[in-house]
């Protein structure tokens, strides 16, 4: 199960909303959380436009997703791809590209279009997430899905109040 967080809208969503913002670090896509805790924390703190947020659950076929979190070959490939492209950008332009720019570059040049999405991790900022003092032992895992056809059983899970 994966979780999609949005601000509460007038009408319930029938499907995920694509993220096109400049801070969509894995490029334009439909963003899902692997952990319900992370989806909830994101809603409370970052989806505050209407004062309430909604969590939707969905099943997603990830057989064609680049799994940089749990698959070493996928992770090694991803690192190589990012670093090759970044090096080329820096040599050619003198400028470091952002991760979003690199992911958009790969999508626009039909590289990432061969994938249904990318599973990636970073670190949670949720202070209540960890039971061990001063050590973040959990991955904060996100799925940037490029192919909406892989989503099934998209349903409203619950509504929460923003912090």
């Amino acid at each position: 199960m994966y979780y999609h967080t949005q601000e509460k809208r007038k009408n319930r969503l029938s499907g995920p909303i694509i993220c096109t913002k400049d801070n969509a670090w894995l490029g334009e896509g439909y963003y899902f959380w692997v952990s319900e805790d992370d989806a909830d924390f994101w809603g409370m703190n970052s989806k505050r436009k209407t004062g309430e947020y909604e969590i939707y659950s969905a099943e997603i076929d990830c057989s064609n997703v680049l799994n940089t979190v749990f698959d070493k070959d996928h992770y090694d490939f991803w690192i190589k791809a990012i670093e090759k492209a970044a090096t080329k950008f820096i040599k050619s332009t003198g400028i470091k590209p952002s991760l979003k720019e690199l992911n958009d570059y790969f999508k626009e040049n039909n590289i990432w279009t061969k994938l249904d999405g990318i599973l990636f991790q970073d670190i949670s900022k949720n202070p209540n997430h960890f039971l061990v003092k001063d050590f973040q032992y959990k991955k904060r895992i996100q799925l940037a899905l490029y192919n909406k056809e892989k989503v099934t059983n998209f349903a409203h899970h619950y509504t929460g109040n923003c912090a």
């Binding site: 057989s63 064609n64 680049l66 996928h74 190589k80 791809a81 090759k84 080329k88 050619s92 590289i111």
Partner: peptide, 23 residues
């Protein structure tokens, strides 16, 4: 399944075609 070898080749070909001006 994702064919990583083919994808890697495509990335190499794509980057080889780029110039300072195009990027």
């Amino acid at each position: 399944m994702i064919d990583l070898n083919t994808l890697e080749k495509e990335i190499d070909e794509l980057l080889a075609k780029e110039t300072n001006e195009s990027l």
